[in-house]
């Protein structure tokens, strides 16, 4: 089977999967009991008013028609208007998405760098105390319960020591002061990002460390390392210049997939740090029955992950033709 045909087949597969998710999502939200109006606990809202509002929001149309509207919305890119914001959904998402991307791409890249660095050392000192301690610490950090760690970090670094802001993305004081330069504003965002970044790094560097360690162990048994040793190169240069770069290659796909997954933003991280991102928005939207917003957020997340999977599969197929069966 040719490469082009393989890619085509996979793309059709992705479209089918996307369509299934699309439909499942619609059914899920309509099956759910309650509607955006049923949450309004206010004795002034008479049943007649409520019924009128439901009609105005288009929620009493037959499901088939609602589904057609929904499909039309998805394919025209206009995802409807949020019930509670009264604002087009795309506007809200475009506003929140960059925040999520800043935080999580940075965290993935930094934890990968840290993981590679530590993994290299662990593999180099394999079967020694350094190796065991580093592996156990990495595993322990990886299993820490995220919101618990996040709150303790906030308490310690944000309150006790006071190095970092407690939460949020910017200090309003800085932004409302007229004439603040954009460099200061940029630094302000970095300052706020530090704590969530640190938390995410503690949790995630471990998995990169483990991958790097085992990949490095493989690499160290390769012929060219033995050749390098035979040439009498010093150990540090063998480690840093010969083994590590090649060992880090398998991490590329892992980092790529993590980048894609990072779009879902971790509802937990964003909630605890009050980071105005997409994951937090999705949880809010779901708990207030704001269908258009919740559907759009979820579709975005699922779509990006699907695409990333496709890219990774195609990349593998390109590198290793045996994959295509």
């Amino acid at each position: 089977m040719g490469m082009r045909k393989y890619i085509l087949r996979r793309m059709v597969g992705v479209i089918v999967v996307f369509f299934i998710i699309l439909t499942a999502l619609f059914i899920l939200f309509r099956l759910a009991p309650g509607d955006p109006v049923s949450r309004m606990v206010d004795p002034s809202l008479t049943p007649e008013d409520a019924a009128y509002l439901i009609d105005q929001l288009g929620l009493n149309q037959p499901l088939g028609i609602q589904y057609i509207y929904y499909l039309k919305n998805v394919f025209t890119g206009f995802m409807g208007i949020s019930f509670h914001y009264g604002q087009p959904v795309t506007e809200i998402i475009l506003d929140r998405l960059p925040n999520t991307i800043y935080l999580f791409t940075t965290s993935v890249i930094l934890s990968a760098l840290l993981g590679i660095f530590m993994g290299k050392i662990a593999a180099w000192h394999r079967e020694t105390k350094i190796d065991s301690v580093m592996t156990i610490v990495a595993l322990f950090c990886h299993t820490l319960f995220l919101p618990w760690l996040a709150l303790i970090m906030i308490w310690f670094f944000g309150y006790r020591v006071g190095w970092f802001p407690l939460s949020g993305m910017i200090s309003p004081e800085v932004w409302v002061t007229p004439g603040t330069s954009s460099i200061i504003k940029f630094l302000d965002v970095l300052h706020h990002m530090a704590l969530p970044l640190l938390t995410l790094m503690i949790i995630h560097y471990g998995s990169y460390l483990l991958i790097m360690r085992s990949s490095m162990l493989d690499t160290l048994n390769e012929d060219y390392i033995i050749t390098a040793r035979a040439k009498g190169l010093d150990e540090k240069s063998i480690r840093d210049h010969h083994a590590a770069p090649n060992a880090a290659l398998p991490l590329v796909t892992s980092v790529g997939l993590s980048l894609a997954f990072s779009i879902n933003g971790g509802a937990l991280t964003e909630t605890v740090f009050t980071w105005p991102g997409i994951g937090r928005e999705l949880v809010f939207a779901v708990s207030s029955n704001d269908y258009p917003l919740a559907q759009a957020c979820f579709l975005l997340i699922a779509g990006v992950v699907l695409m990333a999977n496709l890219v990774v599969d195609v990349m593998y197929a390109y590198l290793d033709p045996r994959i295509r069966y």
Binding site: G13, I21, V283, I301, V305, L306
Partner: peptide, 10 residues
């Protein structure tokens, strides 16, 4: 695939 792209916790 369908199940896999869904973030479980979410």
């Amino acid at each position: 695939d369908v199940v896999m792209v869904m973030p479980t916790l979410l």
